[in-house]
Design a binder for these strands. Structure first.
Lengths: 189, 189
DNA sequence: GTCTATAGATCGATAGAC
DNA sequence: GTCTATCGATCTATAGAC
């Protein structure tokens, strides 16, 4: 790995948090300079296309984390019930039990979406498909599996919105428990 | 009503759509000038505190629409099952069956929240409490009513996020139907 | 009340020294 | 590679003519 790429990777987590806090339009290069400790010259050396490229790299980083820690376990776990357990644990960890928002969801709401449409779309599509697959391997019919998967993925997003607006992370953890119970019930009936 | 206040009310819906499309940080006075047809002089005449005051007035407008069309029916409808029906119809109408986002939800996700915290918080709290009340009057126990209400309010937000990210409003209408069925089932068991 | 003109700050991005 | 200096554009907000 070249030093450039290595250096890029070092600041990606910081970039992610800045975009989370301020949104895409609300994030300035001045703040990125301040928070990363890198001057604009360095930033443009690593990200020649500027702020948009920084966001793209962050979105790719989020997607690959979920690929590895959520979608793959759902798709490949030998015991699909265990795959779903892994998903809920990973989701709880990733969103700091409700104290962190979903960058993909946030970018989806305003016209920021149009600049990153395919990345945002494929994130949720992959999640939906992976969870549907795990549910079907648990014995659910195709239609019901799709129904529950969409419900779960949407509910997680909604719970993050609600937890933020109420400044109460427990809204999120309560939702996760509800969803786990709902899946358990569906599988066992 | 003074002419100032009347004139203010005329442009509030336009302001709302602009903030919905661009977010708070992404909305410029230049675009507001262009879309409303009012010069900056006029805008600052009606909203002396500028962009922030415009957003506050829009948020109040959203809140009062929901008070009248969603929360009050839930709280006061003689037949609480009918109140819930009214809620789902109003929600479907308000969000244009999934083609419109929730401004309150969008403002909640990034640091915009901190500027409007109490308005965002009370919107969701009121919704939650009104729906909980209707569910209890349908015979549900307090705990279960609170549980379902939080689930429904969060799921609606999440479905709006998902519908936008997938550019597919049907994700939203499917979610509304799921939630209606879920409530029906809870009440009748 | 509504406009134009513009202040003063900040924006994203670039240039060039080192 | 990283910095400082700076460009031109755009930002919010104000001033003042009408």
């Amino acid at each position: 790995m070249s030093r450039d790429i290595a250096q890029r990777h070092i600041i990606i987590p910081a970039l992610g948090e800045i975009f989370r806090e301020n949104g895409f339009a609300g994030t300035s290069l001045a703040e990125i300079t301040y928070r990363t400790g890198l001057g604009k010259g360095s930033l443009y050396h690593f990200f020649p296309k500027g702020k948009k490229e920084m966001a793209e790299v962050v979105l790719d980083d989020v997607a690959s984390w979920f690929e590895e820690n959520v979608f793959l376990p759902l798709l490949e776990c030998k015991n699909p019930k265990h795959g779903i357990q892994i998903m809920f644990k990973a989701v709880d960890d990733y969103f700091y039990s409700g104290e962190r928002i979903c960058l993909i969801g946030a970018f989806s709401l305003d016209d920021t979406r149009d600049q990153f449409a395919s990345k945002l779309n494929s994130y949720f599509t992959s999640w939906n498909e992976a969870l549907t697959s795990a549910l079907k391997r648990n014995g659910l019919a195709n239609k019901q599996a799709k129904d529950i998967a969409e419900d779960v993925v949407a509910s997680i997003q909604g719970a993050l919105v609600l937890a933020r607006s109420q400044d109460n992370p427990k809204v999120f953890t309560r939702a996760l428990k509800r969803l786990q119970r709902r899946i358990e019930t569906s599988i066992h009936e």
